[in-house]
């Protein structure tokens, strides 16, 4: 659909052979193309700006080898810089010294939280843990049933004392789940919450109340890889409203370029822990910054 970045940059650099260092004009022309490529990949505008600024510094300092194709050299710099921003090496989940470890999931409506709850439960069980899923979305029609079905598939117990569909208090369920987990000898508690908008003050307060009720070791912000420019505003709202310790990017099995990864990482400063890559519980992987960088650049 789009010209690849390398096509675009090679256009700029055809006249460049033989020079050792990039001139300011070369760098500006390059920066313009990279800006467009990032915007087409849905990286949010303020993040693009910050990224380009730091990139320009690096490009100015860089010695461009005369023998090699300068376009490829610039792309390599961009690629490395993206990997840096996306987090370098992946971080592991943080476990509590005193079990149970509590993992709370939060995010916009339909982002993939409940599915991720099932995936995490299955994955952690596979590593010898005893996870408990907790149904704190008492709002969306049949969210509780959905979690129960996924718990069944993962072979993991689901704590669902309230029927949902508008009935029950999610903060109470969250609070009670910890004691329930201790009684049932579960070492990990995964709290599924309702989808909410960043600007919904009442629902953000509810999320903060759930957090306070369970003192989570991880608050994972689940964001759809297809999200566009709104990623910044939403990530800020969840960062400020609930506090985020990690991010999961969902629906990475699609063909969106996934610039939201960069936006969220930039805004929250928190690592992207996992990639959710399908509807089945096994469609789940640790996050690979290098692959994501290539994907954003359309390489």
């Amino acid at each position: 659909m789009f010209d690849t970045l390398s096509d675009r940059l090679s256009g700029i650099f055809t006249k460049l052979r033989g020079k050792g260092r990039l001139t300011d004009a070369d760098i500006d022309a390059t920066a313009r193309e990279i800006r467009l490529a990032l915007l087409e990949a849905d990286v949010a505008l303020p993040v693009v700006r910050a990224f380009i600024a730091s990139l320009k510094e690096r490009a100015r300092a860089a010695e461009v080898s005369q023998a090699l194709n300068p376009a490829q050299q610039i792309i390599k710099i961009v690629h490395e810089e993206l990997i840096n921003v996306l987090g370098g090496e992946a971080r592991r989940l943080r476990f509590a010294k005193q079990p149970p470890t509590v993992i709370m999931l939060a995010g916009l409506q339909g982002s993939g939280k409940t599915t991720l709850a099932g995936k995490l439960a299955r994955w952690l069980k596979g590593q010898g843990h005893q996870p408990l899923l907790v149904a704190c979305d008492l709002q969306r029609p049949n969210a509780v049933n959905q979690l129960q079905v996924l718990g069944g598939r993962a072979g993991v117990d689901v704590y669902a004392p309230q029927p949902g569909n508008g009935v029950g208090n999610p903060v109470q369920v969250a609070r009670d789940s910890i004691e329930h987990a201790q009684r049932a000898a579960k070492d990990i508690v995964i709290v599924d919450t309702a989808g909410r908008l960043g600007i919904d003050a009442e629902m953000m307060q509810q999320a903060a109340d759930i957090r306070d009720a369970v003192s989570p070791d991880e608050v994972i912000f689940v964001i759809d890889a297809m999200v566009g420019q709104d990623a910044v505003q939403t990530a800020e709202a969840f960062r400020d409203g609930v506090g985020i310790t990690g991010v999961v990017l969902s629906k990475l099995d699609g063909d969106a370029r996934g610039g939201a990864a960069l936006s969220v990482r930039h805004v929250t400063g928190e690592p992207i822990l996992f990639a959710s890559t399908g509807e089945k519980l096994e469609d789940f992987d640790v996050f690979h910054p290098d692959r994501m960088a290539s994907r954003i650049l359309g390489m």
Binding site: D42, L108, G110, D224, M226, V227, G228, T234, D255, A256
Partner: peptide
């Protein structure tokens, strides 16, 4: 179409 969707919406 979800309003939060970026350029993938066209595809």
């Amino acid at each position: 179409l979800d309003a939060t969707t970026g350029q993938n919406g066209l595809e």
